[in-house]
Amino acid sequence: MNKILLFAQLKEQAGSNTLALDVSGKTVKELRDYLESETDLGSLTGIMIAINEEFATDETIINAEDVIALIPPVSGG
């Protein structure tokens, strides 16, 4: 099982601060597509994705028990 930490508006869209899903074996790109189609998170274009406290490229493969964080850029300042 993978724990997915949600930040900013993603918390509201999911109605929760975290998700628990088994997404091991998928690449980060596949994860994006999967979450967009299977959850209420909406478009993940432009959302930064980290695995185990490290930003990951689209090709990175997710392992079992990896903790994933979805960080949306916000523009305020």
Binding site: L5, F7, A8, K11, N17, A50, E53, E54, F55, A56, T57, T60, A69, I71
Partner: peptide, 20 residues
């Protein structure tokens, strides 16, 4: 690291960014 936090939810993460 790239720092990101939520003060209401009491969350703080510090993420390595080199791979990008």
């Amino acid at each position: 690291t790239f720092v990101s936090f939520d003060l209401w939810e009491n969350e703080y993460v510090s993420l390595k960014a080199d791979a990008l």
